[in-house]
Design a protein around this nucleic acid. Structure first.
Lengths: 253, 253
DNA sequence: TGTTGACATTGACGTAACGTAAAGGTTTAT
DNA sequence: ATAAACCTTTACGTTACGTCAATGTCAACA
């Protein structure tokens, strides 16, 4: 039985283009070329194609497949073992990526601030990264490089106890905001207490505190969706409420 | 602080080529171009590059990174979730590949005893003995002494090259049967190819080939424990499958 | 027998994210 | 002044084809 590209392609379930490509790279040459230049494949080529496709299914590169099917003395098992090692390495890399993406997502959802599961060092590093990435650019623009660098430095030098205290405070701030929000009054004692706690929390990061900067940050909690997402997890609409409370706290008009 | 490509590259741990590429695709444009055409980056670009590299580490495509870092209203968490889904799908595919490669390797190991361990002389002698022991009695009964003797003689007179070819063919036959068995279809191309190869293999031993004898042998692979044990090493249930394929191949009813 | 539609050919570009020259201009250091 | 070190653009190579485009061939039908 003889086959043209289309026929063989259909028989084997591949595209004609693939067959031409295999010819081009010398992986599977047709049995002969017809007088009009058509590729003609025979039974032997069908058989060989089956083998090629078998290894292709295993994710082996065409280059390697070429060696496997074209040289009878080739150690196929050894080649496959090498291939397996590659696949395992790939999976390892993937696992890492997946873990990191999940961690990043968790951080975005805001859970990072409250989770006990983070290790101290990892937490510190991440804190600095986020501080840099989130607060860095805009804070730099408004308050200059020094403020950001000082903030990072503060975090780096934080002790275990300080870290624990910060973590506790973070929880208290969020709880205070939640309670205040439930009260519904941004001028009330609960809301003002939340603002005081938030200021205290902020002093962990900022060296030079100013009411204006604090107010600016509260406004950014509303405008910047990254922050908003975080605060909306406490309660929807929470960011606006907190900003309103902050207006009163800082005496902004 | 201003940076040329090399400097920024070093600072960020990427190649100058990468920075030029990022410029080319509009991912990270330099702050300005010097009078002599040099790319000059500023602090803002350093910061942006950090973000880019952060997402790159997570395996996000530059295309997607572009959207994430260039549009403030972009939902990064959603994008990352989509990315995560992709990664999980990739891992699933990888797991499948790995399982298949491992299965193939196991099958190959199970086959080794046929090809590698046998030395030439020992092999030939053994072949004759086996030929006599396995095919001999019944073949003698059916086709007479002469047929068996001719078969043995053929083996004795085999040259080194012929033997090597036979050994190779033997491996191919087993491999073909294994592949065919995995396909599950005794009428399929893989199975029929295995039958063709088996016939070719048989011609090394049999002087007068007939479809009936071939079919009879395939049936014997099922009925005779010694044969069955051999083929079950390729895959359990393999002997029956091969006989069914042979039924179609020989046109037996 | 002519035409048409389905097939064939080669050539070329596009894909992702750069690595690696090559050919030539600029800056810096000695 | 000159060489080293840097910069630029252009362009090909990487993988395994998909997708035109321009053109030639074959089988069937009117």
């Amino acid at each position: 039985m003889e086959y043209t590209v289309k026929r063989l392609a259909k028989l084997a379930g591949v595209s004609p283009r693939a067959l031409r490509y295999y010819d081009e790279i010398g992986l599977l040459k047709p049995a002969r070329i017809s007088s009009s230049g058509y590729r003609i494949y025979g039974q032997a080529e069908v058989d060989k194609l089956q083998q090629i496709l078998f290894y292709r299914e295993l994710g082996v590169s065409l280059d390697d497949i070429g060696e496997m099917v074209n040289s009878p003395s080739f150690d196929r098992a050894k080649a496959l073992k090498g291939h397996l090692a590659q696949l395992l390495a790939q999976r390892k890399r993937l696992d890492l990526l997946i873990a990191n993406v999940e961690k990043t997502l968790a951080a975005m959802e805001g859970r990072i601030f409250m989770s006990d599961r983070e290790k101290f060092e990892g937490f510190k590093r991440k804190m600095i990264e986020e501080n840099e990435a989130r607060y860095g650019r805009e804070t730099r623009e408004k308050y200059g490089d020094e403020a950001v660098d000082r903030s990072n430095k503060k975090l780096k030098n934080m002790t275990m106890e300080q870290h624990a205290a910060l973590e506790k405070l973070t929880g208290e701030v969020n709880e205070a905001i939640r309670l205040a929000f439930e009260s519904g009054d941004p001028a009330g004692e609960l809301a003002q207490r939340a603002c005081r706690l938030h200021k205290e929390w902020l002093l962990y990061f900022w060296d030079g505190y100013s009411k204006e900067a604090h107010m600016g940050l509260a406004q950014r909690y509303v405008d910047d969706e990254r922050f908003r997402a975080y605060y909306d997890k406490i309660a929807p609409g929470c960011a606006e409420f907190f900003r309103d409370a902050m207006k009163i706290f800082t005496g902004a008009k």
